[in-house]
Design a protein around this nucleic acid. Structure first.
Lengths: 356, 356
DNA sequence: CTGTTAGCGCCTTCAT
DNA sequence: ATGAAGGCGCTAACAG
């Protein structure tokens, strides 16, 4: 096939339309400074000549671009896919393109990617979490580029952030578990230090159990892998070495793997053991029993983050730090909260009235 | 915070190092033409001055970039995430950045994205499937940019392709089902025309059943949504209106939703009804019974595609069209193939000996 | 090995 | 409303 000899540039169009280069530039960008008549004609000719702008040239001239960099830990988790979806839609309609990176939870990799991305003078950069390589922070702090940190929350963001409070999420789970009377909780997570948010949630649970029950929380840390599988395997080793009456999971996928393991081990949920997930994924809606979990507003998070970031790009003031609410969703994988109901009604008091 | 006054450029470094701009350019790019002594010194100064290259300027000068565009239907499917992972790793280490798009199965959206992307003179473009807007094809055919079509297969790719034969996959499922003696098959899919690959697989199943059993295949097409949920819902309406003895699913996630539905409806799998998935996802490994499915090599597909594409970018000859193998994995969600085993041993013959 | 020259395609600025 | 001149930062191509 005849591969296009040479793409046309605005100069070619200017020559064809018998106008100056500037008129073409203005016409194409849609800025004022050309009569409507001229503009229409120029655009017609541009279309006929299959004109395609050169973003590099434009970017060089204006010292920025319509690229937005997005760094995620991984694609292998619906959670980030959903956040991403919410953002991409917003950016896409605003004319931005997404340069995406997956760090696999490696801050060095993130740093290298940020470096490469900055060379494109992107319109903005989005990072997952608030835990980055110090040089990444320095680099971004020193640049005029808007930065959004998403999913986690901090009082000291690089620029702006939208997320949830993972420690509080852990506390929420802990409070609920305590209110249901659980005594020997466990948490199936990822390798230590791998995911700061996971660690924060575990700390939240621990805080509550240590304060209100003086009980430890056993942490199981299966090796990395598919979430369903790590949930399954983590539970298996956990049950082999301990006798928890409740297992909390890093997320719903792992909780599902855990449920399958309990079933395989002949344990009945919630009679023999309780299970709590995290995120409130759609997966849970098809299960025969409703999963106790914490609902996170992932899509909203993506949309909110994108909106705030766009505002910042356009110089409009916006909230620098936004925390999204969490909602504990009691299900059938934990024991019913009869006692708790009674307590609420004031029949008797328990340790619950102590905490927080 | 003091936001960097003005990023340094190679000219600044040249001045500092007391050499010409070109020496700096060569030193930084790592090309020959500078003495090692000079290079070392230049790099040291560059680091000290926190030099950061300007990709737009480079791109403008050399008329290409190290951006690679990747278009996927959606993130909401592990399948594409896995393919993407395989690719990204390869590209990343080769120094490319990924500009990613999700079309949500809309060819117009894909076209618009391709247009925007082309303005960056990317090193390559990757599209999912072989079914595109005609203008997308024209645009890409006319450009000198390498194009990879992935996941599906065609004899007439835009440029090169790596994928599987979805029609053959359907036939594989059909053959297996026929060999197990199923008579009233159904297929739970997506809305008609939404996903060409889904349609191709259905056709493959239909071909086999019509040839070897003169039996139709009922197609259920639940509205779009979460795969687990659509699998569940599609099965529900299917069972309300028909009495299939086998349900094939678009993918393992939907098959899982279907299994949950069967359970909810009081049907025993595989005694009352058979279930076949697609892809061989890790999810299946944690289920109490092994899912009958077709294994696809998604990660390999990503890696192979990336490798071939890199070769093409570098002008090295590579295979233009690669089909990856499929493997039917018999599981416990379809009835055991005793009869079939007997047939293999030659005890008696059946319609099986007719086809193919 | 080193430096000079002349763009790459577009946009800002300043004339008219 | 229109156009001319100059530059964005970098790199081929050529000259020493």
């Amino acid at each position: 096939m005849s591969r296009q000899s040479k793409p046309s540039k605005i100069e070619d169009i200017a020559r064809m339309a018998d106008v100056s280069i500037m008129s073409v530039s203005r016409a194409i960008r849609g800025v004022e400074g050309v009569s409507e008549k001229k503009r229409a004609e120029i655009l017609k000719i541009a279309r006929k000549m299959k004109y395609m702008p050169n973003s590099a040239a434009r970017s060089l001239a204006v010292a920025n671009s319509n690229l937005i960099g997005i760094s995620l830990p991984t694609f292998a988790a619906d959670v980030f896919a959903e956040i991403l979806n919410g953002m991409r839609q917003t950016f896409d309609t605003a004319g931005y393109s997404s340069v995406i990176d997956t760090t696999e939870y490696d801050s060095e990799a993130e740093l290298n990617w940020v470096r490469r991305l900055l060379s494109w003078q992107p319109a903005a950069i989005i990072l997952t979490g608030t835990d980055h390589h110090p040089e990444t922070r320095d680099l971004l702090k020193a640049s005029p580029i808007p930065v959004l940190e998403i999913w986690d929350h901090t009082d000291d963001p690089i620029d702006i952030c939208v997320g949830i409070d993972h420690f509080q999420a852990g506390q929420m789970i802990g409070e609920h578990a305590v209110s249901l009377g659980y005594q020997r909780p466990a948490f199936v997570s990822t390798p230590r230090g791998h995911d700061k948010r996971a660690d924060a949630r575990l700390e939240g649970i621990r805080r509550v159990f240590s304060q209100q029950r003086a009980a430890p929380v056993i942490a199981a840390r299966p090796p990395l892998g598919n979430a369903f599988v790590t949930g399954f395997e983590g539970t298996k080793t956990l049950l082999a070495n301990h006798a928890p009456d409740l297992i909390c999971y890093l997320n719903d996928h792992m909780a599902f793997g855990g449920l399958m393991c309990c079933q395989a081990e002949g344990l009945s949920v919630p009679d023999d053991i309780g299970v709590i997930g995290f995120n409130g994924l759609d997966l849970a809606t098809v299960l025969p029993i409703k999963l106790t979990t914490v609902r996170t507003l992932r899509r909203l998070m993506g949309i909110t983050g994108a909106r705030n970031l766009l505002a910042r790009i356009n110089g409009v003031p916006t909230e620098l730090s936004k925390i999204l609410p969490l909602e504990l969703q009691p299900g059938q994988t934990t024991r019913p909260q009869t006692d708790n109901d009674l307590m609420k009604k004031g029949f008797f008091r328990s340790s619950q009235s102590l905490g927080r």
